[in-house]
Nucleic acid binder design. Structure first.
Lengths: 341, 341
DNA sequence: AGTTACGATTGCAGCGCTGCAAAGGACTAT
DNA sequence: ATAGTCCTTTGCAGCGCTGCAATCGTAACT
């Protein structure tokens, strides 16, 4: 049994296929009488427009790709959770891809013609890509970048004010009387821009408080995973002069760090205070609950999608902009102690 | 600047468009000489096949939809993480949708013609849908169901042996000397089949050990979230005779339950042992680490995708089958105590 | 009444690709 | 030399829809 097409509906309704199309899309003016005839025919036949054909005809796919390094990283999962409804509201379906942070894979995706016209635009959260890689990409692909990178003018970037957020986090630790503060997550190489901004905030908070920065307390990690947190924290604990507080560049790192600390029989925050970054759900239920910087994920998703749709609709190139979403410091038990909720 | 099409390549290479198509798809036999000519032309023009057009022409979209209730639930995120590469390997792109467990939304998705030919098949993890809903769906849509439901013969179901897994979990608690064991997560209504199976396993373990089941210790929850765990556990703790162990129907519930217990100043597992279900990453890093039933997610993803692709390729209706992936009991600190790794 | 104007409807062509089956060409067998 | 065979290449038509511009019909105007 063949699928029902526009033509079938047109025949039954006694109008031209074009008119059926007009009704379906609400394009031109259509007489209420005609509309009703057509709608009845549609209902009777159970007609469903063929999205593929529609897309081919008008040259747009109606899909946007969202590319993240890891789907099972809570931060990205939560972000996606917000992006999907936003895209749907804008009339777009979401195609998801994960890259494992692989530079080459990411590069292919933003490269010339990668898409085969399968999606109209892309929201990407790159991990392996350097600024350079982004610049030589397919310029015709409407692109919005989340997180790591900063716009070079050919794409938009959505993030939060990392320096200020980090400044807030570290200042919070200082205000609690901590003096030997470590940072876990610096990435002093090309692809670690976000990390570097956080380190800047870390330094700035020290400077503002008149505190010296112990460079040996700034620990680099390849990723922001739990294992990175465990490894880095273990190294810190092995020192003669461990820190009394740690600013972790993600909640996962914080989770790993806490795991390491408690594993040694030490207490959080009594012995070492911990603050994370991202405000993932785990942090609200772990033991202790994790103080964190909470980026406004809904706003990030909203901004990214809106901006991308605008880009897709725009006739020519659109200058890239930096868009900042809000963030809040959320103190919890890992800095305040059991007294905190 | 128009996009490069098959025709452009054909012209440059001095062959017919059809031949270019043959080269691109490796269809018919093509002389090495011809192939090279065409490939050179492709490279020179930077030609990329238009997937949309291809799909329209051969009537398949090359996409499968994966529908989950919540993307940010770690279990689903981890499952997706496994499904995407499996699908990609099979030549399919993954379109993701989340339903918030809303029955109507889920129903629409599996309903007649929902897809508009946008995807060739669907993997769905329903929450709100009853068996009945699934039965009246669009029978022409190749469908693989994960988790909750059991096959009615028109679709495939992939899951683990819930009864045995639950039996294993509870038997583990009993073997540790626990006697008052609660269960959190039963759902004695139409849409809670998986939960009911787990409750069956719970009873079976009691029976096998010659232990009576205290019905009042079987707590129902609407979902398997952390908040459900907190709520249910709090109620249990408020009783005069709280349990000495709890079998939670998800790791999130377990996480919430632990949160509630520790919040009361009680210890896990000394006062109350906890075992969860799903083996999400959090459970490996939380404090205490959470004993759990670990379903083989890779196998689930693999089976689901393979089976779906087979269904899509099949000419006629395919009888639905039940596919079981493996599972393992993973004892951790929440039952064994700090001694455990 | 004749003309203009405007809204509703339509026809055509084509988006870029592939299924099908036939045509062309080279080569072997008789 | 001629027919037969097999492999490569091709042309046609059409997937189902929409952009465009033309057409039709009717209401509003002089």
């Amino acid at each position: 049994m063949r699928d029902v097409t526009l033509r079938d509906v047109a025949e039954l309704a006694g109008v031209s296929p074009r008119t059926v199309s007009n009704v379906v899309n609400g394009y031109a003016q259509v007489t209420p009488a005609t509309r009703e005839k057509v709608e009845r025919a549609i209902a009777e036949l159970g007609y469903r427009p063929n999205v593929l054909a529609r897309n081919l005809a008008n040259g747009r796919s109606g899909q946007i790709a969202v590319v993240v390094p890891y789907l099972d990283t809570p931060y990205f999962a939560e972000l996606l959770q917000a992006i999907i409804p936003a895209a749907r509201k804008g009339g777009y379906n979401v195609l998801i891809d994960q890259t494992d942070g692989d530079r080459q894979h990411e590069g292919e995706l933003i490269g010339r013609g990668s898409r085969g016209f399968l999606f109209d635009g892309m929201i990407i959260s790159p991990l392996g890509l350097s600024q350079q890689d982004l610049t030589v990409r397919d310029l015709a692909l409407p692109l919005v970048v989340l997180g790591e990178r900063v716009s070079d003018g050919t794409f938009d970037h959505v993030g939060i004010d990392d320096i200020t957020a980090s400044y807030d986090a570290v200042t919070h630790l200082i205000s609690l009387g901590r003096r030997r503060i470590a940072a876990i997550g610096d990435q002093p190489y090309a692809t670690g821009e976000a990390a570097q901004l956080r380190t800047r905030g870390f330094r700035k908070a020290h400077a503002a408080a008149g505190l010296p920065v112990d460079e040996s307390l700034i620990i680099c990690t390849a990723r922001f995973n739990r294992t990175d947190g465990v490894t880095a924290m273990t190294a810190l604990l092995d020192r003669d002069d461990p820190p009394d507080a740690v600013f972790c560049y993600s909640d996962l790192v914080a989770s790993g760090a806490i795991h390491a600390i408690l594993g040694r029989g030490l207490r959080v925050p009594e012995d070492i205070a911990i603050i994370g970054y991202d405000d993932i759900e785990d942090g609200r239920y772990s033991h202790p609950t994790i103080s964190t910087i909470s980026p406004d994920k809904t706003a990030i998703a909203q901004l990214a999608v809106e901006r991308l749709i605008m880009r897709i609709a725009a006739p020519g190139p659109v200058p890239g902009v930096e868009l900042l979403a809000g963030h809040r410091l959320i103190p919890r038990q890992s800095t305040l102690g059991r007294a905190a909720t």
